[in-house]
Design a protein around this nucleic acid. Structure first.
Lengths: 366, 366
DNA sequence: TTGAAAGCGCTACCAG
DNA sequence: CTGGTAGCGCTTTCAA
């Protein structure tokens, strides 16, 4: 079952057998090649990837680090990466960072040991690698100081674990590995980003076009870049349509279903007559908000319109169906592999575009 | 950066360094051991898993085969497996079979090459490994003929690819590997199953207890074991409560959202006055059904009650919130690892229990 | 306890 | 084009 056996069975040297089975192109006489293949088939030979790895110095694998497999956000990306990787003959090894920067660093270290061809980091949507367990007071040290422009939020991220991570990845890259970040820009690696700003911009214009004038926005904390970008794009879109957003109706809340519920409850409580429509920066928030409105006696889509962002599956399951912006996460994953496999020089970047989907939660006015 | 360097730095032989860092227990003088560890730390040494693998003959990994990462059913299982595996210091490599038995076989072959410690197959919920691409006429040959009792549905499954798969896994197991199947029983491997029958049974009793008497059931094709089990459990539960199910109201449809919609549409069309409540064998079907009822002018939860199975996230996002049976998929994944890691002799089995969750879609009657 | 050395299975360089 | 053969980095007898 080893190459040795195959070679003997085929009556050639082990070197020839190796070449016929794996090595570079046509340097084996066709006849010999087929004898080897026959022998391999007969003996049910399977190459030993680890042995190949130690001999060549790298494994035909792509290491994928996600925050949480069960989160549709990550699993959609994972699906894309897996699909593209398998098409390229690469096996995916997946690790879960659980939104902890330390864990992420640890994993990258371990994974590097496996000598994968590619490392893909599908980070969270929070600034500074992942920030949920990071100190909130901003005194964290950022390892990649040179490029940490003040005010862009990158300073969040735990005492130097971010710097260590970047260092680790840079070494890996210098040694010939490919690194791709999904939705984390500003790092010296290939990057796939999502067009949050543009999508929100177009959504705003579409809603303005549908006749809406008085908007409310439910957004997450400033440190959530995704939220920030979406709000920025949305505001700009409104402005382009000649509409201004009243600060009183921009409500900061959690980036969760509960957050959306809470914000809507508050809004309904203090009287929502002045707003015709709510834009929540994510679908789960929007869905929570719809329930809250209903609980407060307002019928979503009639008394108050609601729009979200992400176009998650349940957007069409709720009543009324939710207007949203579709984010092709799976494509983002595929694109990440394309970047990794395409030869381009390292710090390359592509942006995945998003698409507005109007549904019954935002009926055209009049 | 190799063991060699560490050994030199510590002034010991490479063999000693190996023993100090990885090998079996206390056979190294404590002083030497700590010197080696110090050297390793100083040099930032990272062992090369592939080299270890080729030397020892196995990798500290668990190979996980799922049908589709983006499907919450699989991603929840994957999350559990990953969590437990990481806790045990194992890396997970994931492969996607895309519901094709051939692909699954191919993957197992490839994965075996990696010499993983464990192989976990999270099969589909269809009989015969995966049946979607299998012939429908039942003339398929089943490789594991001996145990293929007629009528238990196992005959479905593509010309011997199932037999080949079993053979492949048996060889692997004989060579010391551990195999665990999730939700596929009747195979000579460790198995984690979901208590579909019991859950459905309890659901039926709970609904009977809430005052319901006239039931309809939306089920999938007979070849979908999950559906079959749930229907069987449900029927038994009703019987236990002294209720019988009218065959006219057992509707076979697709195991999808669209299937649920279609079934409900038909039922509403021919008049649903005779039924008080519909049990759909999955939540997605139930949700589709709710929409269809609404489209037909019936208010779910008022004019007609609806219950599902799985307790997917959106069960609480729909209106009214859906009564369902929670299936702890993540735990199933963890349990799979526990089986694999626990020493028990191979064909062991555990069942994951399910829990009824009553919500507004099935208000108590009167 | 420790070191020397024989592999593990495969690749790739070097002569032929 | 092909066959030796020297590694790849690590584990594990086998003596010492």
């Amino acid at each position: 079952m080893t190459l040795h056996d195959v070679a003997r069975e085929a009556g050639v040297s082990i070197a020839t057998a190796s070449r016929a089975l794996n090595g570079s192109a046509r340097n084996v006489r066709t006849e010999n090649a087929s004898r080897v293949r026959a022998a391999a088939a007969k003996l049910d030979y399977r190459p030993h990837p680890s042995a190949q790895a130690v001999a060549r110095g790298s494994t035909p694998t792509v290491a994928l680090v996600v925050g949480d497999v069960a989160d549709p956000y990550f699993s959609a990306i994972a699906a894309g990466v897996t699909q593209a990787a398998e098409a390229a003959g690469l096996v995916v090894t997946m690790a879960v960072a659980g939104r902890s920067p330390q864990r992420e660093l640890e994993l990258v270290r371990t994974l590097r040991g496996q000598r994968p061809r590619v490392i893909v980091l599908a980070g969270t949507r929070i600034d500074g690698t992942t920030a949920s367990t990071a100190p909130k007071d901003g005194r964290a040290v950022d390892g990649a100081a040179a490029s940490a422009a003040p005010g862009d939020g990158r300073a969040v991220g735990g005492t130097d674990t971010r710097g260590a991570l970047v260092g680790e990845l840079e070494e890996y890259q210098a040694a010939g590995g490919r690194v791709v970040m999904v939705s984390q820009r500003d790092l010296p690696f290939d990057t796939v980003t999502i067009d949050n700003t543009g999508g929100a911009h177009r959504l705003a214009r579409a809603l303005a076009g549908a006749g809406y004038r008085r908007f409310a926005v439910f957004r997450a904390s400033e440190s959530v870049r995704t939220s920030r970008d979406r709000v920025a794009g949305f505001t700009a879109g409104l402005r382009a349509a000649g509409i201004s957003l009243d600060d009183r109706f921009v409500i900061e809340t959690e980036f969760t279903r509960g957050g959306g519920y809470e914000a809507a409850r508050k809004l309904a409580e203090r009287g929502a007559d002045e707003v015709e429509i709510v834009f929540a920066v994510s679908d789960v928030m929007a869905i929570g908000a719809m329930t809250a409105f209903r609980d407060a006696g307002l019928v979503p889509g009639e008394d108050i319109a609601v729009a979200g962002f992400d176009d998650i599956d349940s957007a069409i399951d709720v009543t009324p169906a939710l207007t949203s912006v579709a984010v092709p996460l799976r494509e983002a994953g595929q694109e990440a592999m394309r970047l990794a496999l395409g030869g381009g020089p390292a710090p390359d970047a592509v942006q995945i575009s998003t698409r507005v989907v109007l549904r019954e939660s935002t009926p055209a006015r009049r």
